[in-house]
Design a protein around this nucleic acid. Structure first.
Lengths: 228, 228
DNA sequence: CGAGAATGTAGGCGGTGTCAACATAGAGGG
DNA sequence: CCCTCTATGTTGACACCGCCTACATTCTCG
């Protein structure tokens, strides 16, 4: 163990690498940031990690698995950022807004990374999706869910009044709008905006959503005005 | 011209193909549907079109451009479906809901296709994005915008009261929530749902959104409760 | 300390994207 | 009507890729 730690701080000399798995993920992240897509070759990743073109196969079954690991790491850092953003924020509505803003900003600042997180999942009918990735995504989602649960049980979001089904739907809707907005912003399809006003717009979107949950349940037409 | 038409209905015999560009797009669509991803090779596309592996380069600068053309075609058929869904529907709120439902269904039924539409756009800082693709996406968006404009000018969506900025934002928010919901549904991240209830959930989401626009502007806290 | 599991390297195979050189077909002016 | 020009296909080649098998080195732990 001490040997491993040592190897990680001095330039990896020896035959064995120490923590190649992590290095590969980091190299992939570099390439992702540089080229803004994930068409880079697995061999190039290996080169960056100063390792033969076949070494990665000891850690990942194929390229797809590497990308999935990168994606998973993305969900985890996103979760951490959201978590840090709401430290010490007590009011659930304020927390929800902060979370949304941080989320959108993360996506806009790391467009390729963000797209990879959702894009690499594809193909997978359902089961092919690596468990780590699903877990990481759930971890990120759970931040939203927790906030909404908190608001529901403390009467800040009276519309949800502790109905677990409504809470789930509210979380899903929250994620939907924030995710959709982020994707459109990344793709430059949000033309209506003054180009630099993304932060403000993101805050408005998040704010509006929170307000929707705060409003007391009054509407008549549809019994399911639970969220949005 | 008549010669061209003839060649398109009998098995393409001659040296020249007639409408290879379209054939390539169709072949790519087939592969996309079969493999549920766009990792198929350009050469395979050429094979399906019964053409040498280099013929595509007479119509597309590279593989990316082919994919972009496929994506553009996707936006156009999506637009058509939405348009057909609201034929004869007069009330803007009802039209908005129908549009949303059709949109989500399209995404869920053609997950890889839908993801390609948004996924292939990447990399492009802004200008690399082929103009055709941008146009097609705008054409799809314009359906939403038109409905919302109609509702705004006919007082069905009083919150927007003909403020063009609010209308733009409302359209963007509408697209955001529908797009986000679709993506999450595709990725199976909408666990809260009974698995088959997507249609119902989609309708609820759309309905709620429309309701949000219909409600009269009453909220106090934030002057910008324009949408959602 | 010695065997076996982990983890690395070397080399090869079929396939890929793209380029360059050449072939054929259709269109339009002499 | 022919003859050239251009659009569109074809063939061949190159470097590179993903992934496989075989082999080498190191680590672990009984």
């Amino acid at each position: 163990m001490t040997a491993t730690k040592k190897r990680r701080r001095e330039p990896p000399r020896s035959y064995h690498h120490g923590d190649l798995r992590r290095s590969l993920i980091e190299a992939a992240l570099e390439l992702l940031a540089e080229e803004q897509n994930w068409n880079f070759s697995l061999r190039e990743v290996a080169r960056r990690a100063r390792v033969s073109h076949n070494a990665p196969y000891n850690h990942f079954a194929d390229k797809q698995q590497l990308l999935a690991a990168v994606a998973a790491s993305g969900f985890l850092t996103l979760r951490d950022r959201m978590r840090r953003a709401i430290e010490g924020v007590d009011r659930p509505d304020a927390a929800l807004v902060k979370t949304g803003v941080v989320y959108v900003r993360f996506g806009i600042e790391n467009p390729a990374f963000y797209k990879l997180m959702f894009g690499s999942v594809l193909g997978s009918g359902e089961a092919e999706r690596p468990e780590d990735l699903v877990k990481a995504a759930d971890a990120a989602k759970s931040i939203l869910t927790e906030i909404i649960e908190r608001g529901a049980s403390s009467a800040v979001f009276p519309r949800l009044r502790n109905d677990p089904k409504r809470i789930q739907l509210a979380a899903l809707a929250a994620w939907s709008i924030v995710h959709g907005f982020t994707m459109l912003a990344i793709d430059g399809l949000a033309d209506g905006l003054p180009r630099r006003a993304f932060n403000a717009a993101a805050e408005q979107v998040a704010q509006t959503f929170a307000n929707g949950l705060k409003a007391s349940p009054f509407q008549s037409e549809n019994k399911e005005n639970t969220r949005v």
